[in-house]
Write a protein that binds this DNA or RNA. Structure first.
Length: 1060
RNA sequence: GGGCCCGUAGCAUAGCUGGUGGUGCACCCGGCUGAUAACCGGGAGGUCGUGCGUUCGAAUCGCAUCGGGCCCA
């Protein structure tokens, strides 16, 4: 063991620890050490390789790391690799920015090969940056060999999975309405749509009813540009619709509006008057035909037979009639299928109208809104603007549109029920994350559109014949080589695009141009990370994952995509248990965002307080599944706690070293606690207590970790350090450290502290890996495991747990607080002894605890005696006070007499009588509890304070004996202070001179305490004198000071004694 | 609009199988001075988001409402 002189320096400790691990490759050693253990297969949810990590990313990895370290200590062989999600539109968008591109045309001109190389470089560069950041957080995952979604074997896992989908009939080519980003010119997944408020037109439009003069259906829309694609109007069959004669400026027309909405709609249309001519149910309107108000501008509209249809999604809002364009809306599309409506979608991939949109051709749809509105002419009833939530492309923030296109789908709806079954068998933490949240999401899920019309992604391995349209799904790269007779350098676009296959019909099969939705990449992670399908052994051994943990946003993301892909491939859930964690928010509970300027980065926290503090803060600040409100004050508090851990660790070291303390070891040189276990009955109570506490703590940690209650675990650990170790045990044990001779109680203290620290670092290691490693290395015995992270889990030792003692000590601590309280009231410092402390209680626990631990109680109270009194303490008396509010009305004129009687009566006797009988006779009057109150009357010099189930009375009256000790303690303290100022070692001797201005005090000290003081301050030579007395006045002291001690002036001088 | 979670002193939180609201930080006062650019004690501070209900009794259960978060439409 080495002495630790410096105070806690997080950066030095952490740099040292990381260096220590990297030199010895401790991470690999630990993995090796546990390799024979029961496997624990963990899959890292791959972060996307863009930009830098934020607090949420850090939280995610810290949770994973703490949990995995714990499992390793439990003897599990943890199977893991860090993972990275490296394909996709976000990177394409970044690269497009770098190159100044604005459209797909730019990319095609630049060359797909060159473009994806830049994407690859971008992804790899950022992967490396992020790995470094994670390592700095002390994360132990395999960063040397991470799984990457861009490698050949990974891509193969995706291909293989798609082939499984095809084999099981779950792959489908479909014409569907999808979310479409007009800038990226691709379909995007529901999960890639971000919603925020957008200002849009809100218009009410008349559609002329066919064959009727001057009669119209009134619809409402916020997307005028979809009107050229209108084919129908939907009503609710059960709503009541009104045929209204509406009047404006002497003109009249007939309008169909939902009955309840007539008034507001006509008001908006500035109609002056109206009359309801007829009311009919929606079902009566079904089949009514109408013409488009844009028939003049859009030739195709003249061909369409528009009609009214019934739908269940119509609400009693706006006009109660809904404009239907199956080419531009999900509900519209489904309704179109059901009703056999035409799907008309005159918009291209860039969001511009096609020639089939007639007069609007070539216009960008959102720009066309005004033009369309103008074209409506008289058919426009009203126009407003509305602010509503509208979807945007998550990468480029462009407002999305809905477009009917040909895409590839996985038929998630076909396996939905099986998914719901599987969810029930997964252990969710917290439970509601699965049973409520995820369940509801899956129950509402739709088919999964997996195709994207982009470049940087896993190419969809479908080859389709140009001649006969048959298609085949290729499952592996070897299979592709087999079928095509060619090999490719890289399974990305554009290399794979050039490969053709012969079709049985004699035609040529070419790959469909699409790539996978990037969510499909990570969906196959649980088998791809095991090298499946190329290698099957690990997969068969470990899959499915024992555990995953991600943020609550991954409910719709990775929890879902993995489940879907796995159900398709293997018909079972890819994970056995899931911990869903929260989001990192700012102190106000708001999302951290760059534009809001409230972002706190993990770097900021680490730079100021270090990694371990960040880790401990994040883990203890809130339950894993609650959102984390980041708070600097909280970080500071945790920093203080870690600092105390450090101080508690370093405080006994100088003494241990001075005494050449050697913990017991076994034949292999390993630390051996059996001696301490055998002698447990000989240990002082304080030692037995803290040993019991640390074992109880181990039990608590074990229990709470079962449910991933990491906040409770870390709080319990921190609390132990602060409350039990620092605030109590260290205070109790200090004086034993100072013992000169080789006393057994000092040995016990060393053994105990050593034991507690060894257990404590083991318990703390998964959460604060750096500081625990440093402490452990200093405490470690020759034969002990090389790293704290190689220790086995610290299990509670039932032999050493004494719950009675723990309860009794709680009582003493409460007593200790109460004494301090009473002393403060009596203005008697703790340094000054008192004659008597009395604990008045009715509680057996308090009585027994104070009785059993009396020496400790006495020492803590610095009291000559501590006594327990059950019932009434005879030195207490009660003062009776008349309650005139009750006496006055009842006794009338006699009142003043009663008052005087009460005031003169013995309060204690009166109280006893009333308590016994409920009444008391006094001078012929009968008194009850309502006539008199009692206040405790304390003897002179006695002060009281409450403790748990008892009251403590402290008599602070001074006697010459007490006073002598008090002054002596004051002198000792000041000489010690001067020793420190001289920077003396604890074992140096001194010579000292104390001149006391008050000769009575000087005599008091000298007669009883001269020797005591000499011993305490290690003085070979001590002179205490009154002002007149002679001493070494002429002597030059190394340090001389004047002090005011409780009003008595003293002059003290000390020097180091020569020799020894 | 829907689902899930959260809302307790200036800040962060515990309590939530209903029975007199705990803790930490900050603040004020004090102690200790061989862990000392540390450590410890005490005090003050609360309509438990709001409203209604169930109950002898609600922070805790129910309903509604407001605010925050994630997700969905």
């Amino acid at each position: 063991m080495k002495e630790v002189t410096s105070s806690y320096d997080a950066h030095a400790v952490e740099e040292w620890a990381q260096d220590f691990w990297s030199v010895r490759d401790t991470y690999a050693e630990v993995q090796q050490l546990r390799s024979a253990g029961r496997p624990f297969f963990f899959v890292d949810g791959p972060p996307y390789t863009t930009g830098h990590i934020h607090l949420g990313t850090a939280w995610n990895k810290i949770l994973k790391d703490a949990i995995l370290r714990y499992h390793r200590m439990c003897g599990r062989s943890v199977i893991e690799r860090a993972g990275y999600d490296m394909h996709g539109l976000p990177i394409e968008v970044k690269v497009e920015h770098e190159l100044g591109f604005t459209s797909k045309k730019d990319i095609e001109e630049y060359g797909i090969a060159a473009f994806i190389e830049r994407c690859r470089t971008f992804a790899e560069t950022h992967k490396d940056i992020m790995s470094e950041q994670f390592k700095r957080l002390g994360i132990w995952l395999d960063f040397e060999n991470p799984y990457q979604t861009i490698t050949e074997d990974y891509i193969e896992a995706a291909w293989w999975t798609l082939k499984r989908a095809e084999e099981r009939g779950l792959l489908e080519r479909g014409h569907r309405v999808v979310n479409w980003c007009p800038r990226c010119e691709t379909a995007i997944a529901d999960s890639e749509v971000e919603y925020w408020d957008e200002k849009d037109p809100s218009i009410f439009v008349k559609f002329p009813v066919a064959g009727r003069e001057n009669e119209y259906l009134v619809i409402w829309t916020t997307t005028p540009w979809t009107l050229p694609a209108n084919v129908a109007v939907a009503v609710d069959a059960d709503f009541t619709y009104a045929r209204v004669l509406a009047k404006k400026d002497f003109a009249e027309e007939l309008l169909w509006i939902a009955d309840d909405l007539v008034e507001p709609v006509l008001k908006l249309g500035r109609y002056q008057d109206y009359e309801v001519l007829e009311r009919v149910p929606g079902s009566d309107l079904v089949g009514v035909e109408y013409t488009s108000p844009l028939a003049a501008q859009v030739p195709q509209q003249r061909e369409i037979r528009h009609r009214v249809v019934a739908a269940d999604f119509v609400t009693m809002e706006n006009t109660g009639l809904v404009h239907i364009a199956p080419g531009h809306g999900w509900d519209d599309y489904l309704l179109g299928i059901k009703e056999g409506l035409e799907v008309f979608c005159p918009v291209d991939g860039g969001g511009c109208f096609l020639p089939s949109a007639g007069a609007f051709a070539d216009m960008y749809v959102r720009d066309a809104n005004d033009v369309v509105i103008d074209a409506l002419g008289d058919n426009l009833i009203a126009r407003k603007t509305i602010v509503h939530r509208y979807g945007h492309c998550w990468r480029c923030k462009t407002p999305i549109i809905f477009r009917a296109t040909e895409q590839w789908f996985l038929k998630a709806t076909g396996i939905r029920d099986r998914m719901l079954e599987e969810i029930r068998d997964v252990a969710w933490h917290p439970e509601w994350a699965g049973s409520a949240r995820f369940h509801d999401f899956v129950a509402d899920s739709r088919d999964w559109c997996i195709s994207r019309q982009r470049y940087w992604g896993i190419p969809i391995p479908i080859w389709q014949c140009e001649a006969c349209s048959t298609y085949t799904v290729v499952g592996t790269i070897a299979e592709l080589a087999d079928l095509s007779g060619t090999t490719i350098p890289d399974p990305h676009r554009p290399y794979v695009d050039g490969v053709t296959l012969p079709c049985s019909c004699g035609g040529v099969m070419r790959r469909v141009e699409d790539i996978f939705d990037v969510w499909f990449d990570s969906a196959v992670a649980s088998w791809a990370t095991l090298g499946f399908p190329r290698q099957r052994e690990a997969f068969e051994k470990y899959w499915p994952a024992d555990f995953i943990t991600e943020g609550q946003d991954q409910t719709r993301g990775w929890f879902y995509s993995q489940l879907g892909a796995s159900m398709i491939a293997f018909d079972r859930s890819p994970y056995r248990s899931v911990l869903m964690h929260g989001f990192a928010l700012d102190a106000e509970g708001r999302k951290m965002s760059k534009s809001f300027g409230n972002v706190v980065t993990p770097d900021e926290v680490m730079n100021q307080y270090g990694v371990d503090v960040l880790r401990l803060y994040i883990l203890s600040a809130s339950a894993p599944w609650d959102d984390l409100k980041f708070n600097w004050d909280g970080v500071k508090t945790v920093h203080r706690a870690v600092n105390i851990l450090w101080n508690v660790y370093r405080f006994p070291l100088p003494y241990m070293i001075l005494d050449a303390f050697q913990p017991a070891t076994d034949a292999d040189g390993r630390w051996d606690a059996s001696l301490l276990r055998e002698r447990r009955r000989d240990l002082p109570e304080a030692d037995r207590w803290i040993i019991s506490r640390v074992n109880s703590l181990a039990g608590q940690v074990e229990e709470e970790m079962e449910e991933y209650q990491l906040h409770r675990v870390t709080r319990a650990l921190t609390n132990f350090v602060l409350e039990d170790l620092s605030r109590w045990y260290v205070q109790l044990v200090r004086s034993r450290m100072w013992l000169e001779e080789d006393a057994p109680e000092k040995r016990f203290a060393y053994e105990t502290i050593y034991y507690v620290m060894r257990r404590l670092v083991g318990l703390f290691a998964p959460f604060v890996p750096h500081i625990t490693e440093q402490i452990y290395q200093n405490l470690r015995m020759e034969g002990d495991p090389e790293s704290v992270h190689m220790l086995d889990r610290i299990e509670p030792d039932p032999l050493l747990i004494d719950t009675h003692l723990e309860a009794a000590m709680d009582v003493i601590r409460s007593f200790d607080d109460a004494v301090a309280n009473a002393r403060q009231a009596g203005k008697r410092k703790l340094r000054w002894p008192v004659e008597e402390c009395v604990v008045v209680t009715e509680s057996d626990l308090v009585r027994d605890a104070v009785g059993d631990l009396k020496p400790l109680a006495r020492a803590r109270a610095n009291s000559r005696t501590v006594t327990v009194v059950e019932g009434a303490w005879d030195r207490l008396s009660w003062q009776a006070e008349p309650v005139m509010r009750a006496i006055g009305p009842e006794f009338g004129k006699e009142g003043p007499k009663v008052k005087a009687l009460i005031e003169q009566a013995g309060g204690s006797a009166l109280k006893a009588a009333i308590e016994a009988d409920g009444k008391a006779a006094l001078g012929g009057y009968e008194l009850t509890a309502r006539h008199v109150t009692f206040t405790e009357s304390l003897p002179e010099g006695v002060y009281a304070a409450p403790m748990k189930d008892a009251t403590v009375y402290v008599d602070v009256t001074l006697t010459p004996d007490l006073e002598a000790e008090g002054y002596a303690r004051e002198v000792i303290r000041r000489i010690q202070e001067m020793r420190r100022q001289l920077n003396l070692n604890v074992d140096d001797f001194i010579a000292a001179d104390v001149q006391v201005e008050d000769s009575r005090v000087a005599d008091l000290i000298r007669s009883a305490w001269a020797t005591g003081i000499s011993q305490e301050v290690r003085a070979k030579d001590l002179v205490i004198r009154s002002p007149g007395e002679n001493g070494d006045q002429g002597r030059k002291w190394a340090l001389a000071k004047d002090w005011d001690v409780e009003g008595v002036s003293m002059r003290m001088g000390i020097s180091q004694a020569g020799g020894q």
